[in-house]
């Protein structure tokens, strides 16, 4: 039996939660919103047709892996990372690290996390957990989405770490190797905000950033053409709620957590103007929450005619308008 003493804590999101909890374990007092904000986690992207998705969908955060990479770049934290072609070698390395007393983050297919209720589990290769020990045939796991430490069968972890498909984990693992004694939060926060503004406003791709919200608004009325029947459409419309609220966002598609980041940043870098942006972001989040609840309601009632979808379009367009204005002003403020 190998167990690393580890303080398990739930988090809003698996990647920012995992990175935060490993940094806390290594002695750095940093919060999840700071990790998320410094790494420019906030985003929007709409995908109308993609090979790996059965239905149009959207994302509300930056690309998986970017949170760790950006926090590393902006705060000078070094992470040990490794991928494996051979599953046996991948498991061996994990065991060796645990024996040395190192808790290790691994990338997994969420579907094989069998402690999670079946209705939540989907095949998605970009879930992150921290492995903190091994007892017999089971690993002891700290998963940000579960209230306590849990056990996971070796076989399940192996399947999860070496699942195929898009963004396959290939046994990827990481842990922080070194943290600078002095961290420059001013530069890190400024860069994090500037990049988030760039992602939201300036990426020249019509389905990303604020433009992505507008594209989704425009295309949402076409969703019935992709559905098998009304129940399928109802399921997909209700998934908007899941993606915004339940799939590890801290509520309102990360907007509430970003509001918390701006509030902490205002204090940390002595820029009180960010407090106003924090309040505005909380209001923006309330607007997204309204969309979540609206989608849950019309989905449940099978009230999915064009009139309702046009209503949803208007709600999304309002979000696009508000976020465009917000990020433009935030960029001006952070630049000054």
């Amino acid at each position: 039996m190998t167990t690393v003493p580890y303080r398990h804590k739930m988090a809003a999101h698996c990647e920012s939660g995992t990175v935060t909890s490993l940094l806390n374990h290594a002695g750095l007092d940093i919060t999840e919103p700071l990790v998320f904000g410094i790494s420019s986690g906030i985003f929007f992207g709409y995908f109308h047709k993609m090979k790996s998705f059965t239905f149009p969908t959207f994302i509300v955060r930056n690309k998986p892996g970017q949170i760790r990479k950006n926090i590393s770049k902006r705060l000078g934290i070094k992470f040990y990372t490794e991928k494996f072609g051979n599953p046996e070698k991948g498991q061996e390395k994990l065991d060796q690290l645990l024996e040395k007393g190192i808790p290790v983050a691994v990338q997994v297919d969420f579907y094989y996390m069998d402690y999670i209720p079946a209705w939540e589990r989907v095949h998605i290769n970009v879930h992150f957990i921290v492995v903190v020990g091994k007892k017999g045939s089971k690993y002891i796991v700290s998963d940000s989405y579960f209230p306590q430490l849990v056990n996971l069968e070796t076989e399940s972890l192996k399947k999860a770490r070496f699942a195929g498909g898009s963004m396959s984990p290939k046994g990827f693992l990481f842990y922080p190797e070194s943290i600078p004694e002095k961290l420059d939060y001013r530069i890190a926060i400024t860069k994090g905000i500037k990049k988030a503004c760039f992602y939201m406003l300036k990426i020249p791709i019509p389905f990303l950033g604020v433009k992505g919200i507008r594209t989704m608004a425009k295309k949402i009325v076409d969703w019935p053409t992709f559905a098998r029947d009304t129940e399928h459409l109802s399921h997909e419309i209700m998934k908007i709620n899941i993606l915004l609220e339940d799939q590890g966002t801290g509520g309102a598609g990360f907007r509430f957590m970003y509001a918390s980041f701006l509030q902490q940043a205002a204090d940390l870098i002595k820029k009180p103007e960010l407090n106003d942006f924090s309040s505005r972001m909380m209001e923006i989040g309330d607007g997204w929450r309204e969309i979540s609840l609206f989608c849950a309601r019309i989905g449940k009632n099978r009230d999915l005619g064009q009139e309702r979808l046009l209503e949803l379009r208007e709600m999304l367009n309002r979000r696009a308008f508000t976020e465009e204005d917000f990020f433009k002003q935030l960029y001006k403020t952070i630049k000054s």
Partner: peptide, 22 residues
Amino acid sequence: QVILYVEKEDGTYGPIQTGSYL
């Protein structure tokens, strides 16, 4: 259970552990 960021009584924004609405 999920983590939700909310406005607390003292005006700060922080996490609470709560249940899934959906």
